[in-house]
């Protein structure tokens, strides 16, 4: 058997790793999206204190390397009496870390909307979450598609860090196969190909979203 055949014979391991990575990506992305929305809501309460605290949260997490945040959650919180499994810690870390980035992306896109729109929506009685959900959010999604795609790809790449806190995802599968059979190269090539396939799926989804947005007359080209 060639090296590649040996590695491919381990496909159940790669598959389970891929499945774990996909779950982390999807749950982390959904969580981060809602954290982003929550930040958006807090930023628009027109309360300077809330606004400053939300911006502080966004900037603090943008400064922190992802791995350090994971360490803090997984190894730091138990000393405060909060225990969780590696997978829970991973999903929470992805949620809160990338939530800050989502918030910044959507905040920036909102600033690009014509200012009169928010005012007229308020005049029509839209406030708080309703204003965001009915008027603002559809336009933000339609307009910041490529940027959201960037961020989803970063979430995907960040899931590979989670091997360090013993999550059995795709990179873990590759390195496990690698260390079991002493084949240094092929397992990682397979992992990279699988990561790229997930990236292509993300791009496909974003392109669909852009196409729908264009159909509805939001966004151009």
């Amino acid at each position: 058997m060639t090296d590649l055949e040996i590695v491919i014979a381990q496909w159940p391991m790669f598959l389970s790793g891929l499945w774990m990575t996909t779950q982390l990506l999807v749950l982390g992305a959904i969580g981060a999206f809602f954290v982003g929305l929550l930040c958006l809501y807090l930023l628009n309460r027109r309360s300077p204190a809330l606004e400053r605290m939300t911006l502080l949260y966004i900037d603090a997490l943008r400064m922190l390397p992802f791995l350090m945040f994971v360490y803090l959650l997984y190894y730091g919180l138990p000393s405060a009496g909060i225990q969780m499994t590696a997978v829970t810690a991973s999903i929470l870390a992805l949620t809160f870390y990338h939530g800050a980035y989502f918030a910044e992306i959507m905040r920036g896109a909102w600033a690009q909307l014509p200012g009169g729109q928010t005012e007229s929506a308020r005049a029509c009685g839209f406030h708080g979450f309703n204003l965001i959900r009915r008027i603002i959010l559809p336009q933000l999604l339609a307009r910041s598609g490529p940027m959201l795609g960037n961020q989803l790809i970063y979430i995907l790449k960040d899931t590979s860090f989670l091997v360090i806190i013993t999550v059995q995802e795709l990179t873990w599968a590759a390195s496990a196969v690698q260390s079991q059979y002493f084949i240094p190269f092929e397992p990682f090539v397979i992992a990279i190909v699988l990561y790229w396939l997930l990236t292509l799926l993300i791009e496909l989804g974003i392109n669909r979203m852009d196409a729908v947005a264009k159909e509805k007359g939001l966004g151009r080209s």
């Binding site: 896109a109 690009q112 307009r143 598609g145 490529p146 940027m147 795609g149 960037n150 852009d210 151009r220």
Partner: peptide
């Protein structure tokens, strides 16, 4: 992608 995003939204 960032530039494209803001261009499309102009």
């Amino acid at each position: 992608e960032i530039w494209r995003s803001v261009y499309v939204a102009f």
